[in-house]
Simulated assay, not measured.
Amino acid sequence: FTLFFVLFGAVIADLSLEWNKFKHDYNKRYATVAEEMERKQIFIENVKRMHSYEKTHPNATFTMAINHLSDRHIEELVSRRKNHVRSPTTSFKSSIEVNNLPESLDWRIRGVITEVNEEVGEIITAVVSTELVETLHAIETGQLIQGSIAQVFDCCPQPIDAFDCIKNMSGICRKNDYPVPLGKCEPNKCQPVYVYVKSSVDNNV
């Protein structure tokens, strides 16, 4: 029993050290002691889950790590609005050639993906839609330009199909030209930085 409590205490101490490092690295501040205790518990649960997965999946092809969202439940990171998922109108052709594929492909090291966005909640659909268009544009042109998530959020509210909406706007403005949500759509506030065609998504997904 003594050995068990010693090991248990060591685990708790390690998690507390990780928690303190997490708060320092990401400059975390909480409004009350109660909120901090709640966030700490969520953080510990997430870290334990991560370590457990690493032990049970030693041959996983990806790695897991602590980031700025480690003190949140997954439910907090998705939109609270009802999701409307539409079936694709076209089907993939079974005759697509799959020869000469690379063993691996990481778009992150090719400079076509922007940094992780910290936005969560109802704006997440606009985040994903904008970043996908950014990446497709970067793959085709070699230029990675940050688009305005705020514009997509204002002008393409759910359950509107975000990609149809972006197409109807003729593209997305630069982030700097439409930096924050205005509470209403202002399509003429800026000039789209690139034209978006929905078929490009269908062909690349």
Rank of each mutant, 00 (worst) to 15 (best):
Y178C: 08
V116Y: 05
C185R: 10
I149Q: 01
E186R: 14
Q143C: 09
V116K: 11
E186Y: 07
D161C: 02
K184H: 15
G142T: 10
I139N: 07
A126N: 01
I145Y: 03
D161N: 09
N176M: 13
I123Y: 04
P192C: 14
V127D: 03
G183N: 13
Q151I: 03
N168P: 03
N117M: 03
D154S: 03
L136W: 08
L136C: 11
G142P: 00
H137F: 12
S170R: 15
L144K: 06
I145K: 09
T135C: 13
Q151H: 08
K189C: 09
N176V: 11
D177V: 11
K167I: 00
T141M: 13
G171D: 07
S129Q: 02
S170F: 06
M169N: 08
G147F: 01
E122V: 05
V128L: 13
L182D: 06
R174S: 10
D177I: 09
K167R: 09
I149V: 08
E122H: 08
I139W: 10
L144C: 12
T141L: 12
D164L: 00
I139K: 12
K189F: 12
L132A: 10
H137D: 07
E119C: 06
P159A: 07
A150P: 04
K184P: 06
D161Y: 01
A138K: 11
A162R: 01
C190R: 10
N168M: 04
Q191P: 10
I139E: 06
A126L: 00
A126S: 06
K189Q: 15
G183H: 13
D177A: 15
Y178S: 11
C190F: 09
T141D: 13
V133P: 01
G121W: 05
C156D: 02
Q158W: 02
C190S: 14
E118K: 04
S170P: 04
E131G: 10
C156L: 02
I139S: 06
I149G: 01
L136F: 11
L136I: 14
V180D: 15
E140A: 14
N168Q: 09
I160C: 05
E118L: 06
P159N: 09
N168L: 02
G147A: 12
I149P: 02
K189H: 15
N188F: 14
C165L: 00
I145R: 11
P181F: 06
P192M: 12
